[in-house]
Computed example of a mutant assay.
Amino acid sequence: MTAIELITKEDLKQFKSELLTEIKAIVQPGQGQSKQWLKSNEVRKLLNISPGTLQNLRINGTLRYT
């Protein structure tokens, strides 16, 4: 029998906060990146996420297109 784990709104808020912190640390200006813009595949590799996940982050406003 498998245990059921419930995810609360607070869990999701904490995940969102941690994700945004990690994203900001990766793409922060002046951290050795010479490019102003990243391509989708570069963002996916940096964050280790799938194309669908990247699209969902854009749709829900977690990540902006620009």
Rank of each mutant, 00 (worst) to 15 (best):
T2R: 11
E18R: 07
K13G: 03
N41L: 09
L19A: 03
L6N: 11
R64I: 09
S17A: 15
T8W: 02
K24S: 15
A3S: 14
E5A: 09
G32E: 07
L20K: 07
N56C: 03
E22A: 04
Q36Y: 06
E10N: 12
L57F: 05
I49Y: 03
N56E: 08
G32T: 04
R44Q: 10
G61C: 02
L46N: 07
N48T: 13
I59W: 07
T53K: 07
N41D: 13
T53E: 10
E22I: 05
T53H: 05
G32M: 04
I4Q: 14
I49F: 01
A25L: 14
I59C: 02
L63H: 03
S40L: 12
W37G: 04
Q28L: 10
W37S: 12
A3Y: 02
A3D: 12
G32V: 05
T62A: 06
T62F: 02
K45S: 11
K45F: 11
T21W: 01
P29D: 01
D11L: 09
M1C: 01
G32H: 06
Q33F: 13
S50E: 04
L63W: 11
Q31N: 12
D11F: 05
I7G: 01
G52S: 09
I7F: 02
I4D: 12
N48Y: 00
T8C: 06
T62I: 13
S17Q: 15
I49A: 02
N41A: 08
V43W: 02
D11K: 03
L12W: 03
A25N: 13
Q14W: 10
L57R: 08
Q33C: 06
G32S: 06
Y65M: 04
W37T: 15
E22D: 01
Y65H: 08
R64L: 10
Q14S: 13
G52E: 06
N60T: 10
D11G: 04
S40F: 03
T66H: 15
T2G: 03
L20M: 04
I59Q: 08
Q55D: 14
Q55G: 06
T53A: 04
Q33G: 09
E42D: 04
E10S: 10
I4N: 11
Q31E: 07
T66R: 13
L20E: 05
R64V: 12
D11H: 12
R44L: 08
L54F: 02
L57Y: 15
V27T: 06
Q14R: 12
R58V: 06
M1G: 08
K9P: 05
L20N: 07
E18S: 11
K13P: 00
D11R: 05
M1H: 08
L6Q: 07
L47R: 01
L63I: 11
N48M: 14
L54Y: 00
S34V: 15
K13S: 13
N60E: 08
S50I: 03
I59M: 08
A3P: 05
K39E: 15
G32Q: 06
N60Q: 11
R58M: 03
L38M: 09
Q28K: 11
T2E: 09
N56G: 01
Y65W: 11
E5R: 10
G52D: 08
S34H: 12
S34I: 14
K16V: 09
L6T: 13
I4G: 07
K16H: 09
K24R: 13
R44C: 09
R64W: 00
E22H: 08
K39Y: 01
K24Y: 03
L63G: 00
K39W: 07
L19G: 01
R44M: 15
N41R: 05
L47W: 03
E18T: 08
